[in-house]
Design a protein around this nucleic acid. Structure first.
Lengths: 114, 114
DNA sequence: CAGGATCCTCGCGGATACTG
DNA sequence: CAGTATCCGCGAGGATCCTG
C-alpha cells in the first residue's frame, strides 16, 4: 500500500470558497489584473479576493507582480511552480465529471446546478 | 485548454474535517466497524464520525453494511466505486508531498506538524 | 454497539467604509 | 486601482445526554 499521508495537506491548499474559481480564471486567461479578476468573478468582494489570492501566493501557486506606480497595478498569474498543479486539477476534474454522472445514475436528476 | 469545470464539485466531496482521515483508515485497514474507527481516530466524536461517514456513503465512496442484531454491528469499507478515487488520492498525495518539500525550501523549517 | 437529538462555540466568509 | 480595517451572521464542527 502506498503512502497516502500528505493528501490532506494538499487538499487544504485548494480549499477556500473562491480558490477554485480564481485558479480557473488564471489558468484559462493567463495574466490578470486585480480588477479583471473582480469583474470575472462578480460575486466576490475585494477582501475575499485579496485573502484567497494571498493564500495562493503564500503557497507559491500564484505569482503576484506589483507595478509601483500610481494608480497601482497588480497582475496575478499561475506561477511556474503552480503549473505543476495542472495534473492534480485534471485528475480531480475528470473524477468530478465521472462522479456527477454516477450520482445521476444513483439518484436520478442532476442537482449540480451547472 | 481542457475543461476544468467539475473539479470544484470533486473537491467538495473530499472536504470535511475528518473525511481524509476516515478514508485513510478504510483504505489501509479494509473493513472496519464503527467502534474500530472511533478507536483509530481518538479525537473524533460519534456525531462527527457518523456525519462524515454518511456523506461519504451518500456519495457512494464508502459502503455501509448493517447487521440486524443486538448489539448492533455496522461495518464500513471503501465501496467498489469509491476505489476509483485512489488515482485522485494518489495524485493529491504525491503533489502534497512534493509541495511540503517546496514549502520548506521557500520558508525554511517544516511547519507541517507531521 | 451504533447511533440520534440538542445546544453551543468559533472562525470563515461577507458587507461596508476608509486609504495610499 | 488595489487594497486594509471593522464589524457581523451563519453554519461546520464539537460536547453532552439520550435510545433501540
Amino acid at each position: 500500500m502506498k503512502s497516502y499521508c500528505k493528501f490532506e495537506s494538499a487538499l487544504d491548499i485548494l480549499v477556500g470558497k473562491w480558490k477554485s474559481v480564481i485558479l480557473l480564471q488564471l489558468i484559462s486567461n493567463g495574466i490578470m489584473r486585480f480588477s479583471e479578476l473582480q469583474r470575472a468573478i462578480p460575486d466576490i468582494n475585494k477582501k475575499m479576493l485579496t485573502q484567497q489570492l494571498r493564500e495562493l501566493e503564500y503557497n507559491d501557486i500564484v505569482y503576484r507582480k506589483v507595478y509601483s506606480q500610481i494608480p497601482p497595478k497588480v497582475e496575478y498569474s499561475i506561477s511556474d511552480y503552480g503549473k505543476g498543479l495542472s495534473t492534480v486539477l485534471q485528475a480531480l476534474n475528470d473524477w468530478g465529471e465521472a462522479h456527477s454522472e454516477h450520482m445521476i445514475e444513483l439518484y436520478g436528476a442532476d442537482r449540480s446546478g451547472n
